[in-house]
Every structure is written in structure tokens, then in C-alpha cells.
Design a protein around this nucleic acid. Sequence first.
DNA 1: TGCTAATTAAGAAAAATTCTCAATAGTAAA
DNA 2: TTTACTATTGAGAATTTTTCTTAATTAGCA
Lengths: 127, 127
Amino acid sequence: MERQTKPRKMIIDCLNNLHHASFDDIFSYLEENNESKKISLSTFYRNISFLEQDGIIRKVDSAMSEPFYELTNMPKHDHFICTKCHKIVDIPRKIKKEKYDDYGNLIQEISINEYGICKDCLEKSKV
Amino acid sequence: MERQTKPRKMIIDCLNNLHHASFDDIFSYLEENNESKKISLSTFYRNISFLEQDGIIRKVDSAMSEPFYELTNMPKHDHFICTKCHKIVDIPRKIKKEKYDDYGNLIQEISINEYGICKDCLEKSKV
DNA sequence: TGCTAATTAAGAAAAATTCTCAATAGTAAA
DNA sequence: TTTACTATTGAGAATTTTTCTTAATTAGCA
């Protein structure tokens, strides 16, 4: 049975606040936000795996940034990753998923990452 | 200056043959295909980084499989990854890239991974 | 409140990656 | 072709990352 322990609650708490966070981001968050005793690194590793296996959090791999985690309980979306400020923005998926591609492969899942300069960075550099 | 050493040539050779190969795939290839002395692991790590930095090979991260490498000197494409036989298929990109998204972010690069069951696996399971 | 099994913290162990340096081998010039 | 120069290699040490082990703790239930 899965118990509602403090480290687990805090990881979810972190992702509820940050929305996208790397392994280290989450660990730092836990270190900063727990008054009492500090969290063990091995416990942290273990819980990240648990939550991932249970489908509560998801790891998103990215070619141009370090992988990050997000909660799975949100509508399907893609990611825009700013190569300047490293901000990650959720983008609603526009492309309709086809069942089969042109070659007869059954498509069950798609992952799309967009890389570029976010609106904020564009405006800053314009000045 | 970049020298044309044996380990480097063999990594490129490997990717020319296999098209998509994980770190371990490539290392095994080098071990099998060099008669004389064996390649050092540290040398291998070093050269993978070099070739990646020089933009000769590219690492493709994938949420549902281990990361793989490919040569960069091929037309822009996406990847279909079979979750059954783990085959990776290059898919020509259909979607035209827009310069800006709906939110004003400048898009410079897109990476798309499709996951599912490939044609061959579908046919095998049909029988 | 007390019981019980899941979970934790801490550090040991293992695995992955990087670093060090003497020996080797590409490459350019003679 | 031979020589000289220096980037690169191989081997293992060092470091970093991840997993494992175990006694102590704690969440959840009776």
C-alpha cells in the first residue's frame, strides 16, 4: 500500500508550485521547505521512481535542456523550452493525433518539444 | 585540430550502418569490429562528446526508451519508436514549422517522438 | 492508543562518468 | 618517405551518480 509520507507529499507539492522542475530543482525545494529533519538522497531517488512508476509524475526528456518532471494530471500538452532563460511553457496540442501513420505504424503517444526564444526574452532583447 | 582517429571513424562507421544506436550499442560495435587492440571506455566517452559538440552526431532523448545517437547529416525528420521491438524509424517531417507560436514565442527547433506499435509487430500479432 | 508493515535516514556498495598522464599515432612540413 | 610536433589514446585512479542495506521511524488502521 502506498503511504502518504512527507517526502512524497513534498515532491507533489513542489511540482504543483513549479509545474516543471528538474531532479535537482525538486531536491532543493525539499531541502528548503522542510523545517525539521533533512531528507535523505536515497529516499528522494526512491520516491521519484515510485511516483513515476505509479504514473503520478512524468519525466520529460529534452535534447537541449536537462530532463524535467511534471505532474501527469493535466491535459495533454507539448512543451516550449526557451534556450535563453530556460523557461518551460506548456503548449496545448494543436495537431490532431492520427491512429496510423503513412507507413502503417500504430501511433499511441506523441511527444513534442519546441525550442526557441520565449516572448519575454524577445521583448527584453528588443530594447 | 580534429584528427581522424580510429575510434572516431568507427563511431561514425557504426552510425552509418545502424542509423540509430544507443551508447552501449555503439560501444559493442566498436568492440566487435576492431581486430587489433580494444578501445578504452574513457576514450569512447571522450569521443562521443567530441562528435556531439562538433555537431557530427546527435543524441536523441526518448521518454520511453534509452537515448540513442544518429548522424546529423541527414534531412530533418522525426522518430517513430516501437514500444514492442524497440525499432526506431525515421519519419519525414510533415508539419510545416511556423516562425512564431500563438503566444509570441520564436520557434527555432522542434523535436517530435512518436511511440506505438510498428507495422511489422502489428502484422506479427495479427496471426 | 497501540500494532504492524511500509518507509525513512544514513551510509555502504555499485555503477557511471570524468580525469590524469605516459605512450602512441595522425598530420604537416622537410 | 622521414621527421617532428602535438592531439589523442589506453589504463586505471578519482569523482560523481545511483542503488542497496538495515536499524529506527512513522502512517494508517483496528
